[in-house]
Design a protein around this nucleic acid. Structure first.
Lengths: 248, 248
DNA sequence: CGGCATCTTGAGTTGGGTCAATGGTCGTGG
DNA sequence: CCACGACCATTGACCCAACTCAAGATGCCG
């Protein structure tokens, strides 16, 4: 592994410091507390960088757990295929996000991980971290925090799925994407959806037709300008109101 | 702390070895791999045992994170109060379950934890574990596994909330309770619900009237015998069919 | 025994699902 | 460059599961 690659990876790793996995409504971002020692340590850990094409499967349910993954570029979806044939998309991960925690419990993955556009992914071998002892304690602690955030994020999704109306869900989804893009230095108003309407619908627990209808409605209300995967947010405040409106 | 108390705690701790946090459909139970050294180690860690009365708050959103909790007896619900006033019950924890992971991310709790019947709880101070070094590596690893299981459990709930019908949800809920009771050596057919219809409804993303109607319907179909909080499962296979039926 | 919380049941309404048809976009290959 | 086909998105008409509102029933506790 040459210095240039190491350098690039170091950039990835920087995202660890402030990875904001999927914050809905409340902020759950990590404190920027990783020392440069830690970063060097991680350089030794991140051994594999993989390029995925859209549709490629990174791992599927049952694959042996090798470690966690950091998204360098692109978009990844995590989905769960149930024995009865049902499928649920668990989350979308973008640059700087870390995923793969589902593999820790049984040492094999429970979900599947699929690129929804061409992506670059770094593997962080977990067992190596686990056996490096004291030095990487802070890193481990960070993983605990990431998992805890994931649990919080999940709860937010449960809340969304369990008690929000379709319009609120879509508004929350768009605001979440917007926030994550802003966090990464992009415009919070110009979204390019990397997923299909079908995937959005599955993620949000609604049908593709409903997703489509609500996009149209939001556009008619002047909240968005929608053209297929390009979504421009015109009135973020109103969108916020919608995502919170059905109180109690 | 006297020997008797230590002894009692050791019993709690045994649940760690095979804690089955909330398995829906697929089994996610932990391998029984804790050595007795480890158990002794944990004895040193578990310092506080608390008795809670029904309705008591163990911690609430914003409380400083002290550690994880193991349920010795009773029933605990975890709920999340949103700024807009909405409330969502995240899960129910019973004897042998470990909860409190929501506090790790920000070093303060994000959810609230409330006893829904008189309960006994053991605190496992997390920072102490984090700073005990190599010896408790396996314990830490176990916590990683528990958190990973929790993430899986959450996903199952998302799936349930996002795409299952009311009858399927209630069937899945009852089967889950049944399985957890069986796992702990109780009859899988005689359930005493510790939560109200309202709490069940909130957890499952449906209204109290719907919960009630479905209980009635299941009873009419001869699947259950229901009398308030006492539920006897008469036909577990049929219940299983219902919870899986709406394939694709 | 009364007061209160919880649970059940009924009647009417509606959000979002289903089914079906059409329209757009993009990649591929002639 | 255009034409074809595959996929994706939109729109309309209809329907039903679950919600809302409202009234009663049941059990519990002082």
């Amino acid at each position: 592994m040459d210095a240039k690659v190491l350098g690039k990876i170091k950039v990835d790793v920087a995202h660890f410091k402030s990875s904001c996995s999927d914050c809905h409504q409340r902020e759950i971002c990590m404190p920027a507390n990783a020392s440069s020692d830690l970063l060097n340590k991680i350089d030794e850990l991140i051994v594999i960088k993989r390029h995925l094409k859209s549709g490629d499967i990174l791992y599927h349910a049952g694959s042996i757990f090798q470690g966690l993954y950091a998204v360098k570029s692109g978009f990844i979806k995590i989905e769960n295929q149930y024995p009865n044939g049902r499928l649920h998309i668990n989350g979308f991960y973008m640059m700087g996000d870390i995923f793969g925690f589902d593999g820790i419990a049984k040492n094999e993955h429970i979900f599947s991980s699929i690129a929804i556009e061409d992506s670059e992914i770094c593997l962080i071998p977990f067992d190596r971290i686990e056996h490096m002892g004291q030095e990487v304690e802070r890193l481990k602690h960070h993983f605990f925090k990431l998992m805890s955030s994931e649990i919080y994020r999940n709860n937010t999704m449960m809340m969304l799925l369990g008690s929000m109306q379709a319009e609120e869900r879509l508004a929350a989804f768009l605001l979440n994407l917007s926030k994550r893009l802003k966090f990464r230095g992009y415009s919070p108003n110009d979204l390019i959806l990397r997923m299909t309407r079908e995937e959005i619908g599955n993620y949000l627990g609604m049908k593709i037709e409903t997703v489509s209808r609500i996009f149209t409605k939001f556009q008619e209300q002047g909240l968005l300008r929608v053209h297929l995967k390009n979504v421009e947010i015109l009135n973020i405040e109103h969108l916020q109101t919608i995502s919170n409106q059905h109180s109690v």
